[in-house]
Each structure stands twice: as structure tokens, then as C-alpha cells.
Design a protein around this nucleic acid. Structure first.
Lengths: 245, 245
DNA sequence: ATCGTAACCATTGGCGGATTGGTTCATACA
DNA sequence: TGTATGAACCAATCCGCCAATGGTTACGAT
């Protein structure tokens, strides 16, 4: 954790601009302010370092939290990034009990349903965001980025379905898939041809959602998940073909 | 918690029958041995009370645990009943974020799929168990029992689908439904006619599963969930009709 | 070889105090 | 009068320590 040394500190007027100034500094320095666990200094310490009132700091932190850049919990601290999913414990438990075939079976039923609902409920903003995410997948040149954007795209589709419980279900499946062995399988299955196929399939899904065609969206997502299973399951030592819906 | 007073204690021979005797006593007294939290006395204490070695007691407890009558956790204790679901925290979180329409929407998609898989994967033992559970629902004369057996039937169907991840998903939905406000809705919607309808619909689902007809099983379950939603959603102040699959 | 006993190990819980975010109150200043 | 600040208070979490509890091992007796 780096201590901020504000040379102009004494020159800061104690006025309503303190929150704005803190906000600017924090935006710039967030990545270096946090420790190994992503934790920012305690509010009282950070306010003293910035030479502003804790209240002003809190106003800045509230903005950053609303933007999803940090999360805060009473008694625990302030952290950069997204709040950890409550699904973590359950997903770990389930990861130990399930297998790749079962996971694909669930995805094959849940994700087309989510795409179907998204076709009726996604906003134009949602759809534009999906397209941007798929563009990022296309442009990515390392596996970490592909994983990140792929996951974000699937989550965006799930969010566009506008059903909190289904989104919770989707989060569980996502957490199970975050297991390192799972990730390794996906990476090994991903060559140039596969990548192009996935991006094209994402486009087909997004097009169907944009066209407000639930059946086409569900079918496109079903095709995508099936393709994934065909590519991944053999690497998991499994030759099962999943039953048609 | 009642302390066992074994008048015949001094007469107990120290032999391999100690586990068997402990097992018999525990089976008989499980319901009175536990405290308000379902907790049994610590192993060392319980062994002293029964006048047997802790090792003999542990052998008996292992049998009871394997039969699902108790659960044990190192550092925590020994408890009667089923181990609490890991899904608890997540379900509480989701319960605060979702609503009856969303819950039925998820059920309408997940439970027919589970019934479909159960039609292909349930054993005769599973099916017989389903029938027994439905008979218990029919015979029940209080709401607590109906709730208990209804939940057990739906879980048995989910288990018969033989997919741990889907079962985990089902557990989440179940936990959300355990919310007291939810339970209250169900109870108010349940009159004589509704009860008879539900039992008949359960029979139709089980018949289709027994007939190994996935499509019929899914359709019967879909009908059942729809009936439930028609009865319950109006009481939740909601007039929405759920979209067809 | 099996059982009982004791000792040891690993996990969890309880408790008190410290830490940290969340909120309220009083005061100062423009 | 309205706003910002500092201080105080409140509620949630963490940490360290010790005790409690299940899990395992070792040893001696039968």
C-alpha cells in the first residue's frame, strides 16, 4: 500500500470541493492504494492522508461504490472491485459433487431459457453492451481476457432476462465453472477456429435478441452451448452427446 | 436434555456388543436426547452416560449418520436430522431480491426439466418413494405435514434426475420458498379442492415418470406449476399469466 | 485381531477487545 | 440559514486466546 503524499495538501481549501478532489485522486490512484487483498486504508486513515474530512471522503467513496469500482462493508473495510458473490460457498460445495456432463446439461437448459427471456426484456442499452462485450472477446489476445469478457457477456444476457432468481442460478453455475480445472479445460479447447465459431455464435444470439425473436435466441444459445460441449467434453474424457431439449 | 439412567449399567459386559446396544438405545431415545437446537451431548459425555467406550459410541453414531438420522461436524457437535443446506445464505440473499412471479417463472422452467430427466433416470425405488410421499400428502391433516411431504416429493423428483448441479439449483429455489411469507401464501391458497387437484397432478407426474415418458412428465409438471401459480399469484396481488414455455 | 483408553490433532465456538464502516450530533463558518 | 467538519456513538466484523468437540492414532489388554 502506497501512502499518498500531497504536496499541495496545505493549499486545499476546506470547502465542498473536497469530495470532488478526493474523487479525482481516488479514481487515479485506486489501483495503487489497495493492498494485496484489494483493501483500501480505513476511512479515518485515508481521510487524514488526503487532508479532508471523513465525511467528504465518504461522499467520494459512495460515488465510487455506486459505479461498482469499490465495495464497502461495515466492520470489514473498503475494497476495490466487485463484491464477492454470496454464491461462493455453495458453488465450491457443488463443484465437488458435479461433473462436466452435468454442468453442460444444466447450461443447455438454463441458458437458452435466459436468452429467450432476454429477447423480450433486454433494453437497447443491454443489447449494445452485449455487442461491445463480444467485440472485446473477438479482439482479446490472451486467455484471461477471453474468459473475462465471455463471462461478462453471458452474465449480461442473464441480467437482461430480468429475473433475479434466474440470475442467482446463473451465478451458481458461473462460480462452479470458475474452478481452475474447468478453466483449464476451456483454454485447451480453444483454438483459432473454435474462437471464431464462438464469436459468430455470440453474434447470432445477440442478433436474435435484438430481433426480439425468443425462439431464435434460445435456438442460437442452444447451438452455442452444444458446440462448447462437443469441444470440451472429449477433453474431459467424456464422449457423451447431450440429449436434445 | 434428559440424562440416561441405565439401571443395568454395571451389568454391561465390555464386549463388541456395546456398539449394538448403543445403537438400539440411541434409535429409541434420539428424540429426547437432543436439546433445543437438535444437539446431542458431546461424545465423551454420552459415552460415559451409556457406560461404553467412546469408540463403541462412535461406531453407533457412524451408522446413524450413514442412515441420515444425525449429522456430525468436528468442532461443532452431533445433531439430529439433516445437515443444513449450504444454500441457506444464498437463498436468504435471493429471497430479498426476487418476487413470486420470478420464482414461478424459474420453477416453470426448471421443474419440468427435472421431471423429464427423472422419467429417464429414476429407479423403481425412487418411483415407489414418490408414490409413498404423495400418499402422505393426501393423508396429511395439517399444513405443516403437507408442506413437509410436498417439499420431499419435489426433492425426490429432483434427485431422481441424477444431476448434482440441477439438484443444487433446486435446493436454492426450495430455500427461497421456505421464507415465511411464501409459506403463508401457499397455506392460504390451499383449500379442499386445491389439495385434491395437487395430489392428482402429483399422481399424473409420477405416472408419466413410471411410464418413462419424458415429454408427458414435463407436461404434467408444467401443468402442476401453472396451477400453483394461478392459485397463489392472485393472493400475492399479482395477476400476471406466465408465458408459455 | 479387536476393543478400550488415553493422548494428540484439527476444527469450531465463545468471549473480549480492537477495528471499521454507518449514523448522529454539536459546533463553526460563510 | 445551510453546509462542512470533527467528535461521539452505534453496529458489524475481525482477531487472539482458550475451551469444546469431533477425528485419528497409539498402546496395552484380552
Amino acid at each position: 500500500m502506497v501512502t499518498i503524499d500531497l504536496a499541495a495538501r496545505a493549499a486545499l481549501p476546506a470547502d465542498s470541493e473536497n469530495s470532488s478532489r478526493a474523487l479525482a485522486v481516488l479514481r487515479e490512484r485506486l489501483a495503487v492504494l489497495h493492498d494485496g487483498d484489494g483493501r483500501l486504508p480505513p476511512e479515518r486513515d485515508l481521510a487524514a492522508e488526503l487532508g479532508i474530512s471523513r465525511r467528504a471522503l465518504r461522499r467520494a467513496l459512495e460515488v465510487l461504490e455506486a459505479e461498482g469500482l469499490i465495495w464497502r462493508q461495515q466492520g470489514k473495510g473498503t475494497f476495490v472491485g466487485n463484491r464477492p458473490s454470496v454464491a461462493g460457498d455453495l458453488a465450491r460445495d457443488l463443484a465437488g459433487r458435479t461433473n462436466p456432463v452435468e454442468v453442460f446439461e444444466v447450461r443447455l437448459h438454463v441458458e437458452p431459457t435466459l436468452a429467450r427471456h432476454a429477447a423480450l426484456r433486454a433494453t437497447q442499452h443491454d443489447i449494445a453492451h452485449m455487442r461491445r462485450l463480444n467485440e472485446r472477446i473477438r479482439a482479446a489476445d490472451d486467455d484471461d481476457s477471453r474468459e473475462l469478457w465471455d463471462e461478462a457477456l453471458h452474465r449480461q444476457i442473464a441480467q437482461s432476462a430480468r429475473n433475479a432468481l434466474f440470475l442467482g442460478v446463473h451465478e451458481i453455475v458461473d462460480e462452479v465453472r470458475r474452478d481452475e480445472a474447468w478453466r483449464s479445460l476451456r483454454v485447451r479447447a480453444r483454438n483459432d477456429a473454435a474462437r471464431a465459431t464462438y464469436v459468430a455464435q455470440h453474434d447470432a444470439i445477440i442478433d436474435a435478441i435484438a430481433a426480439r425473436d425468443p425462439a431464435a435466441a434460445a435456438a442460437a444459445m442452444s447451438t452455442h452451448i452444444r458446440t462448447l460441449s462437443h469441444n470440451i467434453l472429449p477433453l474431459a474424457g467424456t464422449e457423451v452427446t447431450l440429449a436434445d431439449v
